[in-house]
């Protein structure tokens, strides 16, 4: 849970910086994919540091820093502290930055084994044992969830900060969005396990709209009841193993998902 700090009103032409840590660049791409809104965005704020988009680097301080990626190397653990110092308002964007991302699956395994298997000369690899979210290292003012983040939420974030509004980023279930859109519920109509009832809204119910269950790329909602949902998946014929895998994806290391997946892993092993 994020600590509450006042929402600032950043001045027009605020300096925006975008930083990348361990990630796939997809969330930065989401920024570039804003298309018609991109020009408006560069009009509203000064893009001071965004290596994926432009070579020019303006020196810190920055008014708003968007951070993509998780912390998975000693160097990143150092660098994020400097980024925090350089940014007045720091926002973790995407599943990696807000929960550790898919690379946090290593947190259940031995990283030495992985490094040995992947690299011919593992002695040159400096990596941490775990991949962790930004908030595990520095204070984070706000989070945008998702793999990748949602365009509309990115725009909402920036336009909200420009007027000093708390960004309208609901923490309630995906089902509310899905039902507002009038989509058929894949769990109720197909008996398909869908994490929607335990996942934070924000994507616009992309997967249910394609007739497939939500796999939780926005991570757990406020107070998810994963015990009950897990029981329901079992009734629908899912195995503990399948449920574990469903939870151990983009947001595996978010506490509610972690606890629930560990629970199903234990039950799987007992069988």
């Amino acid at each position: 849970m994020l600590a509450k700090r006042p929402i600032p009103k950043v001045p027009p032409k605020s300096r925006l910086a975008v930083f990348k840590f361990s990630s796939c660049d997809g969330c930065q791409l989401s920024l570039l994919n804003l298309e018609e809104h991109l020009l408006e965005l560069v009009d509203a704020v000064e893009v001071a540091y965004f290596l994926e988009a432009r070579r020019r680097e303006l020196p810190p301080p920055y008014d708003v820093g968007l951070v993509e990626g998780s912390i998975s190397t000693p160097h990143e653990a150092q660098r994020i502290r400097q980024v925090r110092r350089d940014c007045r308002y720091l926002v973790a964007i995407g599943a990696c930055a807000s929960s550790g991302g898919i690379q946090a699956l290593r947190n259940w395994a031995d990283i030495g084994e992985f490094v040995g298997a992947v690299y011919p000369n593992p002695q040159y690899i400096r990596t941490l044992d775990t991949a962790t979210p930004i908030a595990a290292h520095v204070f984070v003012d706000f989070e945008l969830r998702g793999c990748p983040v949602n365009h509309a939420q990115l725009l909402e974030l920036v336009s909200a900060l420009l007027v000093g509004r708390r960004p309208n980023v609901p923490t309630s279930s995906l089902c509310l969005e899905c039902k507002r859109r009038g989509l058929p519920c894949v769990l109720v109509t197909h008996g398909q396990p869908c994490l929607g009832p335990a996942v934070q809204a924000g994507c616009g119910a992309l997967c249910p709209a394609c007739n497939r269950g939500c796999y939780g790329c926005f991570g757990p909602m406020e107070q998810p009841n994963l015990n009950s949902l897990g029981d329901r998946f079992l009734e629908l014929g899912a195995s503990h193993r399948q449920i574990k895998h469903l939870l151990r994806m983009f947001n595996a290391y978010q506490e509610p998902f972690k606890q629930a997946s560990d629970h199903h892993e234990r039950l799987e092993q007992q069988k």
Partner: peptide, 10 residues
Amino acid sequence: VGAVTRGIDR
């Protein structure tokens, strides 16, 4: 204590 009340102040 909130965004609106701070907004009024601003």
